[in-house]
Design a protein around this nucleic acid. Structure first.
Length: 594
RNA sequence: GGUCUCGUAGCUCAGCUGGAUAGAGCAGCAGCCUUCUAAGCUGCGGGUCGAAGGUUCGAGUCCUUCCGGGAUCACCA
């Protein structure tokens, strides 16, 4: 690697010329800013404490020593304490040709001997997927792909929350108000139908509470004593006791939901290696809690409920089993964590879950460590920010949720409309055109969601629909399609671009594209370390923009010098490949034409 | 109230473990298609990086305090 090569030379210079052993960590090269001449910049200020000289003088000495000892350096200049190094054009030309021979742009920086399990999506079966899930799904899937691209052994898992009081609410509502409706009989997507039942429950439950309050109940008592909630609680106990009728209804309704979810996942381009169901893991959770109780890690209160006291660690007491013996969220997560570890012996268990659950995961890890599960130190909560609407957080009760399917439909329609306005895609057969609109709409959505730092709360304004111009997914796709068009024309005209290294001087915009492509490995590495697809998204945008600037100013096929024409085709080819590869890590398809 | 987190242009966001004159896109204005895809390119206007201190040769970035927004501290998941 270029920077390591220069670093080594620099270390030798320090050793031989200054008799200093410098900590390699102290040496950091950065990209030279566009307004200065050079490719890489060394900031010399950190060395001034060790070598008492003025910055400009030291920079100059280092520059001339480096140039004498490393043939990669073409020239250097010094501005204040900044040493700007220019690299030989040959280096860039050779790098370009070498990389055109690769088939993929992954790298092996992670240890393949142990697995990384990453959980994302984690839906409840009582509500359809919404905008928040979209961020979660895209983020989890993309981080998994990024880790794989760095050589990691990654297992993508989903944890379906398929049991609990909330599920019973939908079931009960279906029995009472469902009129025997099924997805088949109504044509309603399964997850949507069950979601409607959940809403129906909530509505009826609220009106029951109102009636009780007029009878003199306090709001709290009304909430507890409404017949519907008591029936739902009864149903949960029946479910936990394995009562057949309840179990059958539960299974039927959950299957409706799963087939609905599958449609959404497939359309989003999301997949999993393994799906866990809480109904299959909560018993293990209970068992572990009972073991912990036996070992006095936990304690029992007078009413029979089981708790963990974390006050010594600055947290509160945490409930693990209710007085009636039913399990809570934490119980289930203890079970699934154990099962997951047993299945894969993973060194890392990454949970892609919203930052509103920071406390929960803090507690989960502490409890598992108390239980002396050493692997729990590998638990990592990839805590992403919420998606907010202009009026604030999405609230399903207030009907301010943005439904995932609806949003994808909208993106498709917008892509179709824009393409038609621009007179594009008209020559394609119907199916291919539909596919293209879908790819473009999804690219706009995915890029929009993933370009933001995962940890930050982001804003989504449905009224100002997602852009297709500027810093967007379609812009990147367009750049790819544009390059492919040029390459096709080259082939049509029997112009080839072999992986040869000509000896020519690079022009500024040619070099700008190559040096940007050259940063890919570091970008990919940082994206993995920071678990941040946003870094890939930024790279894609920079690359597309820089290429378009190059394209605007430099003829490719009309270039008469054959060596230079070949070089420009090489640059175009590698840019297209890199756009496709890096875009793939975000789940963005790169059309050949658009 | 405790803990955590965010605050950068009218809006949405970049700004890598502190480095040169803080960057994009959108929106606004003005240009560029008889030449490789104009979903593109070029230019203009728009900022006391929430505020005040501090550390440093150097702070949007680190520390402290304050102001403002959000999350959480549930026998909901």
């Amino acid at each position: 690697m270029l920077e390591n090569n220069l670093k080594e030379t620099l270390l030798n210079v320090f050793k031989n010329d200054y008799h200093l052993k410098i900590n390699p960590e102290l040496i950091g090269f950065q990209q030279t800013r566009a307004e200065f001449e050079g490719d890489l910049t060394l900031v010399v200020f950190p060395f001034l404490k060790l070598i008492k000289k003025n910055p400009a003088m030291l920079a100059d000495e280092l520059g001339s020593a480096l140039m004498a000892q490393n043939p990669l350096i073409k020239s250097y200049n010094v501005i204040k304490g900044f040493l700007n190094l220019s690299i030989q054009d040959d280096y860039w030309l050779k790098w370009l040709a070498d990389n055109l021979q690769r088939t993929g742009y992954e790298q092996a920086v992670l240890d393949k001997s142990t697995a990384i399990v990453i959980e994302y999506s984690s839906p409840n079966t009582n509500k359809p997927l919404h905008l928040g899930h979209i961020r979660n799904n895209l983020l989890g899937w993309s981080v998994a792909e990024i880790l794989k691209a760095n050589g990691g052994k990654v297992i993508k898992v989903n944890l379906v929350n398929d049991r609990g009081i909330h599920i019973c609410k939908s079931m009960l509502a279906w029995q009472k108000f469902g009129e025997g409706k099924t997805p088949e009989s109504t044509g309603i997507k399964g997850d949507k139908l069950v979601g409607e039942m959940y809403v129906a429950f909530d509505k009826a439950y609220k009106s029951e509470q109102k009636v009780l309050i007029t009878k003199g109940y306090s709001p709290e008592d009304a909430a507890k004593n409404a017949p519907l909630i008591q029936e739902a609680q009864l149903m949960l106990r029946q479910w936990e006791n394995g009562e057949q009728e309840t179990r059958e209804l539960w299974e039927t309704m959950n299957n409706w939901v799963y087939s609905g979810f599958d449609v959404t996942y497939t359309r989003l381009g999301i997949d999993f290696d393994k799906i866990y169901y809480e109904s299959e893991t909560y018993l293990l959770g209970k068992q572990i809690v009972m073991e912990g109780l036996a070992k006095s890690v936990f304690f029992k209160k007078n009413d029979g409920s089981v708790w963990c006291d974390l006050s010594a660690e600055g947290l509160d007491e945490k409930l693990l089993l209710r007085a009636d013996g039913t399990s809570v969220y934490m119980t289930q997560d203890i079970g699934t964590a154990q099962l997951r570890y047993d299945d894969y012996k993973a060194e890392k268990l990454i949970y892609v879950v919203g930052n509103e659950q920071n406390y929960h995961f803090d507690v989960l890890q502490k409890i598992l460590l108390r239980l002396e599960k050493a692997w729990a130190s590998g638990i990592e909560h990839l805590s992403y920010g919420m998606v907010e609407l202009p009026e604030g957080k999405m609230k399903s009760r207030e009907g301010t949720v943005v439904d995932a399917d609806d949003l994808m439909d909208e993106m498709f329609q917008t892509a179709k409309k824009m393409s038609e306005e621009l007179g594009k895609g008209a020559d394609l057969p119907h199916d291919a055109a539909e596919q293209l609109y879908n790819d473009i709409g999804l690219a706009a959505l995915k890029y929009y969601m993933l370009r933001v730092d995962p940890r930050k709360t982001m804003m989504f304004n449905p009224a100002e629909s997602i852009d297709f111009n500027g810093n967007t997914g379609p812009f990147i796709q367009y750049t790819h399609a544009r390059i492919k068009s040029v390459l096709r024309k080259a082939v049509d005209n029997q112009i080839s671009w072999p992986n040869t290294v000509a000896s020519i001087d690079l022009m500024p915009k040619e070099k700008a594209v190559i040096t940007l492509l050259h940063t890919w490995n570091e970008i990919l590495r940082q994206a993995a370390i920071n678990r941040s697809p946003a870094l890939i998204a930024n790279f894609l945008y920079e690359l597309a923009k820089t290429y378009n600037q190059f394209y605007q100013d430099n003829p490719i096929l009309r270039e008469t010098d054959s060596d230079r024409r070949c070089l420009r085709l090489q640059i175009s080819d590698l840019t297209a490949r890199m756009l496709k590869y890096a875009g793939g890590l975000l789940g963005i398809q790169m059309p050949e034409k658009m």
